[in-house]
Design a protein around this nucleic acid. Structure first.
Lengths: 199, 199
DNA sequence: AGGTTTGTGTACGAGTCGTTCATGATCTAA
DNA sequence: TTAGATCATGAACGACTCGTACACAAACCT
């Protein structure tokens, strides 16, 4: 839930219109769902939201920035981070949930957002800060506890383990070379944990 | 090395101009190196190549298709697939080579190509067929021999193992959340093989 | 020669981008 | 109540890109 606030909101002067903000995000989200990233043009968003194009440019630096905020606004996936003590089970649950949500429209859109981020630094930043980072922190907690419990060797690099767990998921989402299903979650967790467990 | 040949080249009539083909690919590659995917506009490529825009549209379906062919044309990375019998060493060598090439301009461009592929099916197809597939087949051979030698359990899913090995690399290339260096290759190979080896 | 396909030059309409300008609206502080 | 500050709007603009249409020249085969 990244808040669009490139300029700060000072105490003096006319305050920012919440109506315009929400109308923009809703319009952008609708366009995203209907026609993907290509349809979420600045002009189209402005027209649909009934908000001036200038106003949108004032608060968001680029079309991609609007899109990713609209994505967060619409698909507010409250990712549940269970911690039952069963590392394998907890990780499998997390990854299966993500896979499940990525098998729908949200997945296509996330792929398009990551794609657009390769040529839009502001989108890249927002995606890394607002999407990836919180999820990695939560996963790091789960893995850290497993280390504390003596279930994972302390010499393994946790960031790398996180990539081994999640990167295959995003990779299949974007390249579509292999199915994105629960079997992937199960296999990845099984192989990865077996590779880092205390012997 | 995907050959651009949307229409077939019949035996009758004026043959396709090799000059125009090479001029197009060279111009596109130059523009890619200089200004990234954004600079490789159809108009810019046509102008620089001295080739009519219509001619380019005749042989390539989209701007992304031109770009990926130009990438293959310029960065003809002859990926060496060693097979010394030392699975860990061979995989580490492969992955280190790829990481090394991705740390330069080729990496930025590959990231942009994968990004653009998310909204350009023809680019997505070319990338999957001309880039990913041959590399996966070569890796499958290496892993298959390791299975035959009894170094990898026969019940593990090889495509998933390949994703565990390579996806973290592409994931870091695109998200830039962690460094893309030799340590990643070493750690990934170590963890992955440890997780699938015969016990 | 006749038929066929390719390449060129020019031009076009449609769409998008990001910005400028003048004007009015809405808030805080004096 | 007034002055100052900031925001939102509408319209318009130049620049750029896209993909296509047209007429015509070039190169090859039978």
């Amino acid at each position: 839930m990244t808040s669009p606030d490139a300029p700060t909101n000072p105490a003096v002067g006319r305050p920012r219109s919440e109506r315009a903000r929400l109308a923009t995000l809703d319009a952008a989200a609708d366009l995203l769902v209907e026609g993907g990233l290509a349809a979420a043009t600045m002009e189209a968003v402005a027209a649909r939201a009934g908000v001036s194009k200038v106003t949108i440019y004032k608060w968001w630096p680029s079309r991609g920035a609007v899109a990713v905020d609209a994505y967060f606004h619409r698909f507010d996936e409250t990712y549940a981070y269970v911690d039952t003590g069963d590392v394998a089970g907890d990780l499998t649950t997390q990854i299966r949930l993500l896979i499940h949500s990525f098998r729908g429209r949200a997945g296509e859109l996330m792929a398009e957002l990551i794609g657009q981020a390769q040529s839009d630094p502001s989108l890249s930043d927002t995606l890394r800060t607002g999407w990836l980072q919180p999820r990695r922190e939560a996963t790091a907690t789960v893995l850290g506890r497993a280390v504390d419990r003596g279930q994972i060797r302390p010499d393994v690099d946790i960031p790398t383990v996180m990539d081994q767990l999640y990167a295959p998921l995003y990779w299949r989402l974007m390249m579509r070379h292999q199915p994105l299903d629960d079997a992937l979650a199960d296999e990845v967790v099984r192989n990865t944990l077996e590779g880092v467990r205390v012997r």
